Amino acid sequence: MTEPSESAGRRLLLLHAHPDDETIMTGGTIARYLDEGVDVRVVTFTLGEEGEVIGDRWARLVADGGADQLGGYRILELTRALEALTPPGRPPLTPRFLGGAGRWRDSGMAGTPSAEHPRALAQGPFDTVVAALADEIAEFDPQVVVTYDAAGTYGHPDHMTVHEASVAAVPIASGRTGTDYLVYESVTEASALRAGLAAAADRVPDGWRMPHDAELPSYPDNRITTAIDIGGVYQRKVDALAVHATQVTVAPSRTEYALSNNILAPIFDVEHFILRSQAAEGSSNPAPNEPTARNSDLFTPQRRPAQARP
Rank of each mutant, 00 (worst) to 15 (best):
T2L: 11
E6D: 15
A8S: 12
G9P: 06
R11Y: 00
L12W: 07
L14H: 03
P19I: 10
E22S: 05
T23Y: 00
G28H: 02
E36Y: 06
T44D: 03
F45A: 15
T46D: 10
G48H: 05
G48F: 01
E50V: 03
E50P: 07
G51L: 00
E52S: 11
E52G: 08
V53F: 03
V53W: 03
R57A: 11
W58I: 09
R60D: 08
R60A: 02
V62Q: 09
A63Q: 07
A63F: 05
D64Q: 05
A67Q: 10
D68P: 13
Q69M: 15
L76Q: 14
E77T: 13
L78I: 09
A81L: 10
L82V: 14
A84N: 14
A84Y: 13
L85Y: 06
P91F: 00
P95G: 05
R96E: 13
G99M: 01
R103S: 15
W104N: 05
S107C: 03
M109Y: 10
A110S: 08
S114P: 08
A115C: 13
E116L: 12
A120F: 09
A122H: 12
A122M: 05
F126P: 12
D127H: 06
V130D: 09
V130H: 01
D135G: 10
E136I: 13
A138Q: 04
A138E: 06
Q143S: 02
Q143A: 06
Q143G: 02
T147N: 03
A150N: 07
G152I: 10
P157L: 02
M160D: 11
M160A: 14
E164K: 00
A165R: 00
V167N: 04
A168F: 00
V170I: 15
V170K: 02
P171I: 14
I172P: 08
S174F: 07
R176I: 14
T179G: 03
L182Q: 12
S186P: 10
S186Y: 00
E189T: 09
A190I: 10
R194P: 01
G196T: 14
D202Y: 01
G207Y: 06
M210E: 04
P211M: 04
R223T: 13
T225C: 06
T226P: 08
I228A: 11
Y234D: 13
D239S: 08
D239R: 01
L241K: 00
A242S: 05
V243T: 13
H244M: 09
H244A: 11
T246V: 04
T249D: 07
T249K: 05
R254Y: 05
T255W: 00
Y257V: 08
N261V: 08
N262K: 07
L264H: 01
P266C: 04
I267C: 08
F268D: 14
D269Q: 10
E271M: 04
H272W: 06
F273Q: 03
L275T: 13
R276V: 11
S277E: 05
A279V: 13
A279L: 12
A279N: 05
G282N: 03
S283C: 06
S283L: 06
P288W: 08
E290F: 11
A293T: 15
A293Y: 04
N295P: 11
S296V: 12
L298K: 04
T300D: 13
Q302P: 05
A308W: 15
P310N: 00
